[in-house]
């Protein structure tokens, strides 16, 4: 019996060498162009980037060090009867970029989002004549639910800011800020503090949590987080009376549907364990890749209570 077991083990040893087949996962290269243009609703300065795809000999795309940015294109955006022409410029690159020099971009400094829910359109004519087109619709407005916290803090541990939207399932990027001025008698400096939604423990450390863009029309603010933010602004400075706290604002960036889809496809994952071989790629650019989209900013003024501000030793810049 032992002899027979030995035979089996020896037989298996015959296969002892590891083996595998080579795999070439690449097919024929096809030229494509990528346009990224997000029309910002909080400024008139708009930037677009335009690039081409590339191939490398192996599997590592970082082997490509030739800047794929495209120069000499004509980019125009239509909003209603108005047309906005973009001019070529450059913007600085991040320090760790594998490409050298500034990045070619296109800008326009006169575009402002008009009314809600209006169609916008982009057309790009590439240097060799190929056209890219994109369509989107500016975001619908949101309405803050005024039954909730218009003045904080109250006796509650959490304050909730809700809003209603006419367009379901778009993404919102909310944040809560307050403005304050630091004065040392000679100079005055206006500052803005972004208040985290709450603090939580990560690997034994207490970290602030700022909500990521999501389709949740709600922002919850913990009183503890607001307290911490109030303390934070004067940390290391005993002259609390030099600080004047003004109003706070609940700000929400409302993404349009195209920007929502693009954002989700690039920033959200099914989860950390599902493995998907054909990763989702969203584009609304006809004839190419990338995104043409817009967002709008809406704000709600929130009053910080005088006695609350003064409890930190600060001056209240808000009326009673």
């Amino acid at each position: 019996m032992k002899k027979e077991i030995c035979v089996l083990i020896i037989a298996s040893g015959l296969f002892g060498l590891s083996c595998s087949d080579d795999l070439n996962p690449t097919g024929d290269f096809k030229e494509k162009y990528i346009l990224n243009l997000v029309m910002r609703g909080d400024t008139t300065l708009q930037y677009a980037t335009l690039s081409s795809n590339y191939s490398v000999g192996g599997f590592d795309p970082y082997e490509n060090t030739t800047d794929p940015a495209v120069s000499g294109a004509d980019i125009r955006v239509w909003q209603g009867d108005s047309v906005y022409v973009f001019e070529e410029t450059t913007v600085p690159r991040s320090a760790d970029s594998r490409y050298s020099g500034d990045k070619i971009a296109y800008k326009n400094n006169s575009f402002a989002l008009e009314r809600y829910g209006r169609p916008i359109e982009v057309e790009v004519v590439l240097p060799h004549g190929k056209k890219l087109k994109g369509y989107s619709k500016t975001p619908e407005p949101i309405e803050f639910d005024l039954q909730n916290a218009l003045s904080v803090p109250s006796e509650k541990d959490f304050f909730y800011f809700k809003w209603n939207t006419y367009e379901g399932q778009v993404y919102f990027e909310p944040r809560f800020i307050f403005n304050y001025v630091v004065s040392d008698g000679m100079n005055k400096e206006s500052k803005t503090k972004i208040v985290p939604s709450r603090y939580h423990e990560v690997d034994g450390n207490i970290e602030p949590y700022f909500p990521k863009p999501s389709n949740n029309p709600l922002f919850s603010l913990s009183k503890a987080a607001l307290d911490s933010a109030m303390i934070d602004i004067s940390r290391g400075n005993s002259q609390k009376q030099n600080y004047t706290i003004y109003n706070a604002y609940m700000e929400v960036l409302v993404y349009d549907k195209s920007l929502t889809s693009y954002y989700v496809s690039t920033n959200q994952a099914l989860d950390g364990f599902s493995v998907k071989v054909d990763a989702t790629d969203y584009t609304n650019i006809e004839g190419g890749l990338g995104v043409f989209a817009s967002y709008r900013k809406q704000s709600l003024k929130v009053k910080l209570l005088r006695n609350y501000i003064e409890s930190f030793g600060y001056k209240a810049g808000v009326p009673d």
């Binding site: 290269f29 590339y54 700000e251 690039t266 967002y295």
Partner: peptide, 18 residues
């Protein structure tokens, strides 16, 4: 079966629009 690669492009990942 699997789907082949036919190239790469540099995709923009937007962070915060603030």
């Amino acid at each position: 079966p699997f789907t082949q690669l036919i190239g790469f492009y540099d995709k923009t990942y937007f962070g915060s629009f603030y």
